[in-house]
Design a protein around this nucleic acid. Sequence first.
RNA 1: GCCGCCAUCGUCUAACGGUUAGGACGCCAGGUUCUCAUCCUGGUAAUCGGGGUUCGAUUCCCCGUGGCGGUACCA
Length: 482
Amino acid sequence: MSKIRTRFAPSPTGFLHIGSLRTALYSYLLAQKNGGDFILRLEDTDMKRFVEGASEAIYNGLKWAGIKYSEGPDVGGDFGPYVQSQRLEIYKKYALELVDKGLAYYCFCDSKTLEEMRQEQTAKKQAPKYDRRCLKLSKEEIAQKLSDNTPFVIRMKMPTDRVVEIDDLVWGKVSYNTNDLDDQVLLKSDGYPTYHLAVVVDDHLMKISHVTRTEEWLPSTPKHILLYEYFGWEAPKWAHLPLLLNTDRTKMSKRKGDVAVEDYIKKGYLPEAMINYLAFLGWNPGTEKEIYSMEELIKDFDLKKIHKAGAVFDIEKLDYLNGYYIRQKSLDELMKLCKSFLAKEWEAKGEEYIKKVIALEQERLKKLSDISEAIEFFFADELKYEPELLIWKKLTAEQIKKNLEEVSEQLEKIPEKNWVNDSLEEAMITYIKAKELKTGDYLWPMRVALTGRKASPSPFDVAEVLGKEESLKRIKFAMNLL
RNA sequence: GCCGCCAUCGUCUAACGGUUAGGACGCCAGGUUCUCAUCCUGGUAAUCGGGGUUCGAUUCCCCGUGGCGGUACCA
């Protein structure tokens, strides 16, 4: 069997769709698994949707995710150009070849004519379909119109009464009757090819062995199969993938949530988490292992285990995985990752300080973007919180104030050089135990005094990072609130 | 309308025709020297409906129902 070559062929519409990323991932995994090639091709054949600089979003997204392509617009390769708008002559040549063979024909109908035709058919409850009026044109009429520069498209001629069977690696055998298929436009009047022509020509020329794309393409696959037949080319293997869905089970789209990879990068999702999560949306290894690195995915990936039903994109599980991967990071790595989420003025505190602070919050983060809000109290000159927050259970303000006074006295005794969480904890716990007091009566107000929050890391950890002076200052401040 | 596809806990998903229908997320409860988080333990929750086939259907077949996709000079 010849070498496996898969491709990711997105339209540069301005951003990389999260669903596209998963399609790219599966295509990449399929190629890597079999020691094949994975290439990137830009399908920019719709001039109306042209977006300046849109290809960058695709390059960046793939790079972020760790999906590497060996050929593509920005890396070159033997089968270029890898941008369809740069291959117009190629498509034209092949479209004309089909016209010569009598398998495609010129059509001079304008959009108004077509629209009327469709409306009439819909009114009669018929399937909207081109009525082939231009197929009846004589050679002379065609020549005349062409020399008059009448705008034209080239349409594919559909055979009648033929059943085309797709043998799909995911869906099995699916059949369509050509009578239900339209005479698809192959070459548009602006000289650009439609998707159908371009994808077939390019996949053939670029020696793609497996066409991987989402389910929405299944119904147009018979057209593509026929095109391969018309050209006399061997068709690739098909693998249609299940769709990614919104919570309401419709095709995942903007307006119903974030769909751009960029959005997730900005929120501080890790590529490891995203890849792991995306891989499991429509596939699983058949074991109970659910934490997967890219390398492990390559090893265990199998098209046969992809299933057909669409999968809802569930942010809760992504969050879980993201938190998991954040916890796996070394402190230095995490520091680097968090950098862009930290306030500039915090840098004055120094790298070591920030590092200690981040260490305390690591296990609490779900997204990197959580870091800013989570640690701001470490940098505040004065904490803002309701005094009632200092009150533990049924104690009175008087008692809390007295307890804080005791805490303060005990902490005072600890020398600067012993100001680390273990000694702090030992000192406080010893004191509390000796007097047969309740830890919560002391530690809760102490913690709130240091953090101003109802939820935070332990008071001893926070105190260590804050330092003796600042810690005592915050406790005094709390006492004054009561 | 027409064509096609799909259907297991709320979500992602396991289950050669024979399992107490399993796991993960979420949620709930308990434990882990104050809170939160982490971690550990336990719990909650599903085979769309109706017919077949079979000794036995989540699994195979048919019919419903529901959902989704396609039906463009968009991809």
